[in-house]
Design a protein around this nucleic acid. Structure first.
Lengths: 194, 194
DNA sequence: CCCTCCTCTTAAACTATCTTAAGATTTTCT
DNA sequence: AGAAAATCTTAAGATAGTTTAAGAGGAGGG
């Protein structure tokens, strides 16, 4: 049951015979992750790609003053990883932990490399996945360069309507790159100005 | 001669028989681009992926107040595109133009799709390319969330030592996300403080 | 070669965002 | 349920970065 979401996503890009699907599933490890439990910490090497089936994870960095900066949320159906660490198998800079009790599928780097050789269709699947991630980071970077905090907040609401309801406002502030106090201030100022 | 840089890059990821290489090269169009000439403007659809062989291009957005925000520089050996526009063949938000007189290779979206079917090795090549771009945007986004303007400037110098010498300071300011006046101020303040 | 345009610098006034702090409220853990 | 921890709000004072303006120097185009 846990695999269905991922298999559905894959079948939107490529068609897999049953035996290849079974082989792929055999490479995945199911893992339950409790709220606040880490899947990765700074300086560790990201050994597996992570696919979320239940709950929600987050990826963030901690700056030299100890402040968290959330780079990504990963609700069900999303992949998450310190991509540079995963690709080059070198120490990363991200922390990944669970916001709610969650369930994830893990695909190790070595199994993934093997998968590309045995089933070239996965080469295509992960190409498409990477292209889309790349494209969305490109636009997010433009937003970060050209929009105000309030505009970035509205963007976030449009892009992740389901997340905005269940996330503490503090974490949304961290994602859009402002302090929780400032986000609170601009949101409440807006209402009274209206 | 124009193709050599690209073919060398490709051969670092995959090995291509001569006939496949010839087929690939037959899909490429060479184009000379004069300083300030556009290859893409906002609202246009990105029909081709662009590979730079000489000179330097830049990709940028213009905000509602008319200010430019440079997302990427593309010296020789780099690809550049409004990735979302290229992928989905819908209107984009980026401008792409030449900083110096340049030469580029163009690979159209339709030819690229055809290429993936005829030569699966290119599926791998572009997967790796996208993964790396994705990884570097991830880290750049972390920098943008957690570093000061001066730190982002130093990062830029480390990452693009060759660019820093030939780019007007104004464009570096635009890339790191500050006004040219402010970059000038922090750079000169630093010297006198020392 | 000259003129124009672009770039760099400096400085003062302004604005967005941060810091600190404290109280009120909500959520989590036992 | 009750204690402990995290979150949200508000406000005052501080800082990073912007705006505007003006002058000097450099580079590109005819």
């Amino acid at each position: 049951m846990s695999y269905q979401l991922l298999l559905d996503n894959i079948s939107k890009c490529i068609s897999l015979p049953k035996d290849e699907e079974d082989y792929f599933v055999s490479l995945l490890k199911i893992k339950k992750v409790k709220r606040k439990q880490f899947l990765l910490q700074e300086e560790e090497v990201q050994k597996q790609a992570i696919f979320v089936t239940e709950g929600c994870l987050r990826g963030y960095a901690i700056d030299k003053n100890g402040f968290e900066h959330i780079l990504q949320f990963a609700p069900p159906g999303w992949w998450i990883a310190d991509m540079n660490s995963l690709l080059n198998q070198e120490p990363g800079i991200l922390y990944i932990d669970a916001i709610f009790n969650s369930e994830v599928l893990l695909l190790s780097k070595t199994d993934q490399d093997e998968l590309f050789i045995r089933i070239p269709g996965f080469e295509r699947f992960f190409r498409i996945l990477s292209e889309r991630s790349f494209a969305s980071y490109q636009y997010r970077m433009v937003d970060s360069l050209s929009l105000s905090a309030l505009e970035r907040y509205h963007n976030f609401c449009k892009l992740y309507p389901s997340l905005i309801e269940c996330l503490p406002q503090k974490q949304v502030a961290s994602y859009i790159g402002v302090t929780p106090e400032f986000l609170s201030a601009i949101l409440n100022k807006k209402i009274s100005a209206k």
